[in-house]
Every structure is written in C-alpha cells, then in structure tokens.
Computed example of a mutant assay.
Amino acid sequence: MVLLENDSFLTELTRLFQKCRTSGSVAITLKKYDGRTKPVPRKGHPGNYEPADNKCLLRASDGKKKISTVVSLQHHAYSNLLRAHMDGLKKKDKKSKSKKTKATQ
C-alpha cells in the first residue's frame, strides 16, 4: 500500500474512479488515525506515545492498486470528490426482501 501526500492522493483517486466508471468498483475505507505505527506497549512497560489530534486514514483500492493518505478532519475536498463519484449506487429494493420473508414462512 502506498502512502501518498494529500494532493497526489486526490489525483490518483480521481484516476481510479475514472478507470472503474464503466466496469469495476472502488472500495474506500476511512478510520481514525492516532499516529501510531507500532502496537501499544503492555502494562508496566513505559511508552512515550502522544496521540495526533483529529486525523483520519483514508484508503482506496480497485482490487489491483491500493493507495492511502492521512487526512486532518478539516479537509472537505475528499467529501466533495466522493459525492461527485457516488452516482452509480443502487437503491435497496424493499419488495424483494418482503417476498423472501413470505416465501420462507
């Protein structure tokens, strides 16, 4: 997995979206990032760990290529980019769910 700078991550993410527009998908994960690269020490062992404030680890993958970056929570460019490319989502069909439950009873 490649850890990129914020600007280069945005351009690579746009390329992934364009490449997977016709076929394929892009998986995006977002989780809180506290700045640690090593595990937390056990009890009784001193640790000099100071958490980073309000950071998120953003990962994207198309199955072949994986990219990631660390983002502060004040950046809004990522949310705008994601909203622009989420037009291919399908709505949940409520009728098929109710038919399956009736058929099993």
Rank of each mutant, 00 (worst) to 15 (best):
A77Y: 10
T11F: 01
C56F: 14
L13R: 01
T22H: 01
A27I: 04
N6P: 06
L82S: 02
S98K: 13
V70I: 15
D62R: 07
L58R: 01
G44E: 01
T101Q: 12
K94Q: 11
N48W: 14
Q18W: 00
L89F: 12
P41T: 07
K102T: 13
R59A: 05
Q18L: 04
K64A: 13
K97D: 15
V26H: 01
A52I: 10
K97Y: 12
A103F: 06
L4M: 14
S68C: 14
K91L: 12
S79D: 11
H45N: 11
Q18A: 07
D87Y: 05
I67E: 02
T104Y: 11
V40E: 09
S23K: 00
K66V: 15
E5P: 06
K31N: 02
D7C: 03
Q74I: 11
F17Q: 00
L58Y: 07
V71Q: 04
Q74S: 15
G88M: 07
Q105A: 13
S79T: 10
K64Y: 13
A27S: 05
L81E: 10
K102E: 10
K99R: 10
L81W: 02
H76P: 06
S79F: 05
L3A: 12
K19Y: 01
F17I: 01
D62N: 15
T104S: 15
G35R: 00
K38Q: 14
A103Y: 06
A103T: 08
S8K: 08
K99Q: 10
P51G: 04
T69F: 01
S25K: 04
S61R: 05
L58I: 14
N48R: 14
T14P: 00
L89P: 00
I28Q: 00
K92C: 11
Y78Q: 02
Q18Y: 01
A60W: 04
L81C: 10
L57V: 03
T29R: 02
H75L: 08
A52C: 09
I67R: 03
T104C: 14
A52M: 10
K55T: 08
F9G: 01
V26S: 03
K43I: 11
S79A: 11
K32H: 07
M1L: 12
D87S: 10
E5W: 01
S68Q: 15
D87M: 07
D7V: 08
V71R: 03
S79C: 06
K91M: 09
V26D: 01
R59I: 08
K100D: 15
K95M: 09
H75Q: 09
A103N: 09
S61Q: 07
